[in-house]
Design a protein around this nucleic acid. Structure first.
Length: 271
DNA sequence: GTACGGCCCTGTTAGC
DNA sequence: TGCTAACAGGGCCGTA
């Protein structure tokens, strides 16, 4: 499931291969989640950015193609025409640059991904993007600002992180990892300034490591070159329920918070 | 404005 | 062996 490190990995691979290229043709699955793919025909790509878990592809007509990979979305290049035998192909774009044609494909087994074309910078039709909190490395995101954002809600800290509001880009995997590192209970509803600072630092640590290792591949995630990530071998909490805690050796617990399986250590992350 | 539940999706896994 | 139900979960929407 692509979170910030996976999306950033894909972005870094897409950028040099997309910028400056023109979209000659496009096609999509009939779902309105994917039909915006064809709205970018005959535009040229001028940048590939990221905001939280969203990819933002800048177009030369002052619009942007917004891509969310959902849980199982994969962007990949193919020499020649798109693969119309792939039952999970949801959208494709034929790109041209100095006579070289290539296809960018968007495959997504579970169809939780989505595409949108918007005027540049206008995200009002994409609520989570419009309301996303600061990027993890935004210099204005101080401990105090993070703490204030958390303090304004009474929801469980894990729920708050997944909402993308206090900070952008954290999903289920990296939320569990950061809370484990910071020794904070995922169901905690009140965090002091110091603990908020510890959590912010842990979030930055796990996201940086995720990017360095090219993301986390548990099942579906592949980068734009078809490769897998390496962070799945470095997880302390996520997916490890029943296994020993890497800090105190007690058995890790699991429960559902905000409809997401949450793994934590009852001893290290006591309330 | 906030909190919460349900829904979208389909491959995989567990249980019978 | 084959079937069924549960499970995985990011974002959006409706309701309270």
């Amino acid at each position: 499931m692509p979170e910030l490190p996976e999306v950033e990995t894909v972005r870094r691979q897409l950028e040099p291969r997309l910028v400056g290229r023109r979209v000659l043709e496009a096609g999509s699955h009939p779902s309105t989640k994917f039909t915006p793919a064809v709205d970018v025909i005959d535009t040229a790509i001028d940048r590939v950015a990221r905001r939280g878990k969203y990819l933002i592809v800048g177009l030369n007509d002052d619009r942007e193609l917004i891509v969310h990979l959902g849980m199982t979305g994969v962007l990949r290049f193919r020499a020649g025409p798109h693969d119309d035998t792939d039952p999970y192909l949801r959208a494709w774009w034929t790109l041209d640059h100095e006579g070289l044609a290539e296809t960018l494909e968007f495959a997504d087994v579970r169809r939780f991904g989505r595409l949108r074309v918007v005027p540049r910078g206008d995200y009002q039709t994409i609520p989570t993007l419009a309301n996303a909190g600061p990027e993890p490395w935004d210099p204005e995101l101080t401990t105090t600002r993070f703490w204030q954002a958390i303090k304004s809600s009474n929801r469980a800290i894990k729920t708050q992180l997944l909402s993308q509001r206090p900070i952008a880009g954290v999903g289920n995997i990296y939320a569990d990892e950061a809370l484990w590192i910071a020794e904070i209970n995922p169901a905690a509803r009140r965090l002091g300034h110091d603990r908020a600072g510890r959590l912010l630092e842990a979030i930055r640590t796990v996201l940086e490591q995720g990017i360095e290792l090219g993301g986390t591949t548990l099942r579906d995630y592949r980068n734009a070159e078809g490769g897998t990530g390496g962070n799945q071998h470095r997880l302390f909490a996520y997916g490890r329920a029943g296994q020993p805690c890497g800090r105190c050796n007690r058995e890790l617990s699991s429960r559902v918070i905000d409809a997401r399986t949450t793994t934590w250590c009852r001893a290290c992350q006591a309330r």
